[in-house]
């Protein structure tokens, strides 16, 4: 029923029975409305989703790990999660969700503006060199937050560039083809995984591997080696170990601005039993009680 506007659907699932039973992708701003509603409840899912800042290592200064670490130290993830995500997100140390194959011996980069400024200065970042931050409309509020964080923590100017929706397909094509140099330093970006357990197959591979769609910068030899070993590894435990090694490398090299894994929020009408799934909208286990409109 995707001919129903999501806001109309949310009104119906919250305020009526017998109209809409399940509405996925509830916004973080609307979560409390569902919780407070008479006819629906909120299902929260630790989803296979991640938001990050994609770093363009082809740009001057961005190939320097000190600059990349400075960007990570500039962002207050706790404030981001409480403010933008209303608490419905998990901070990350790398690109693996903390509930899906992430190593337990690394912590998210702390918010440390002084150390961030020191690293940026040590890397020789010119005071008049602005950071170019690009965004698409789906993650524009996240980009606003990053821009404010970089300005206030690093004391540098940030040029925020928005990709118009009508140019999105063309921009994606240019990003994937890598024939034309990108003119941004960081791109606010959202991505997902198809299953839990080995995030490098779908997440790290796309961002950093020589064949990855979103890689911007030269391939990282150690990363290529680890990925090469993992694609022929059929032992699940050893594959998991390789995945954690890849995430540690990603963290240590600060290959992205690591942010958080947003939860998926679903509004479910009364008399409907819905089981949330981390990687998909799955209905096989959904059932309705005898009081449900369709069984009266």
């Amino acid at each position: 029923m995707n001919d129903v506007d999501p806001s109309e659907a949310l009104n119906k699932v919250c305020d009526t029975e017998g109209e809409i039973d399940i509405v996925s992708e509830v916004s973080f701003e609307d979560a409390q409305r569902v919780i407070d509603s008479e006819h629906a409840h909120l299902v929260t899912i630790d989803a296979m989703r991640i938001v990050s800042g994609l770093i363009n290592r082809d740009r001057e200064y961005m190939g320097d790990v000190r600059v990349r670490k400075a960007l990570n130290l500039a962002v207050d993830k706790a404030r981001l999660i409480e403010g933008h995500f209303k608490g419905y997100a998990h901070p990350v140390a790398g690109m693996s969700p903390p509930y899906s194959g992430a190593p337990t011996d690394i912590e998210p980069y702390p918010h440390d503006p002084d150390e961030a400024k020191r690293l940026l200065s040590e890397a020789g970042w010119p005071s008049d060199r602005p950071l170019v931050l690009a965004t698409t409309s789906d993650v524009a509020p996240l980009a606003d937050y990053l821009a404010e964080s970089f300005r206030s923590s690093l004391g540098i100017e940030v040029e925020l560039v928005a990709v118009p929706d009508e140019h999105l397909a063309a921009a994606q094509k240019v990003l994937v083809e890598k024939k034309i140099p990108q003119n941004f330093d960081v791109l606010s970006h959202a991505w997902f995984d198809l299953a839990a357990g080995y995030p490098p197959a779908v997440i790290h591979r796309e961002y950093y591997h020589s064949g990855g769609a979103f890689r911007l910068g030269p391939p990282v030899p150690e990363f290529e080696s680890l990925m090469g070993r993992s694609v022929i590894e059929t032992d699940a435990e050893k594959l998991g170990d390789l995945g954690r090694d890849i995430d540690r490398l990603t963290h240590c090299e600060a290959l992205s601005v690591f942010l958080c894994c947003p939860m998926a929020l679903v509004a479910v009408n009364n008399h409907v039993n819905f089981t949330g799934h981390a990687a998909t909208l799955e209905l096989a286990e959904t059932s309705v009680e005898e009081g449900h409109w369709s069984r009266k």
């Binding site: 029923m1 809409i20 039973d21 399940i22 992708e25 409907v272 209905l283 059932s287 309705v288």
Partner: peptide
């Protein structure tokens, strides 16, 4: 199975979720 559910799923991967279901 008994009953019917009306689902609104605005996720961009809705086409994939329908395939999987």
């Amino acid at each position: 199975p008994a009953g019917t559910v009306n689902v609104v799923d605005p996720h961009p991967l809705n086409w994939l979720y329908i395939t999987w279901n």
